[in-house]
Design a protein around this nucleic acid. Structure first.
Length: 148
DNA sequence: GCCAACGTTGGC
DNA sequence: GCCAACGTTGGC
């Protein structure tokens, strides 16, 4: 799951312990959240940082429910086309698990042969993406410095 | 700050 | 249902 650190960072999540992942307004990203299960681990990615990097690990603490900001006229995520009876946008709550001492930068991910098929490498725009177990473990190893 | 890639909208 | 126009994302 991606976030610009100026907007919401892994340090913010560590402070808050958990947060609703609101504001996702992309159908593919929404669909990925709708199939997430409680306890699923999440790579927390800092986009538009220098360099962009996986900054830590979160986990799903509440499964998908309608994003309340879509009905809030004062929210910047307000969507007048969404119907209360058929909500358009959904979210999950995520909890803090781990902040990497050394974030795993995007260039390292791109250079890693085992991660060539990661969605992150191949569709940089999607803000909630699937990650395989192998990819997850690989990134976590890289964060621990075990790059071989 | 630029701009390529991608998703969405809406006219036809 | 196609696709041009437009808006957004996010790496660089």
């Amino acid at each position: 799951m991606k976030s610009e650190p100026e907007v919401y960072s892994i340090d913010d999540l560590r402070r808050d312990r958990r947060t609703p992942w609101d504001g996702v307004r992309n159908y593919q990203a929404r669909n990925h959240m709708r199939v997430m299960e409680k306890g699923d681990l999440v790579l927390f990615y800092h986009s538009r940082s220098h360099p962009p990097a996986v900054a830590g690990v979160a986990k799903v603490v509440k499964e998908a429910y309608p994003d309340p900001t879509q009905f809030d006229r004062k929210s910047k995520y307000y969507d007048p086309r969404s119907d209360k009876d058929v909500p358009r946008w959904w979210l999950v709550d995520v909890g803090f698990v781990e902040r990497f001492d050394v974030p795993v930068p995007l260039p390292a991910i791109k250079a890693d042969r085992g991660l060539a098929d990661m969605v992150l490498v191949n569709n940089s725009r999607l803000s909630v993406q699937p990650v395989t177990d192998q990819e997850f473990e690989r990134v976590r190893e890289m964060a621990k410095g075990k790059t071989k």
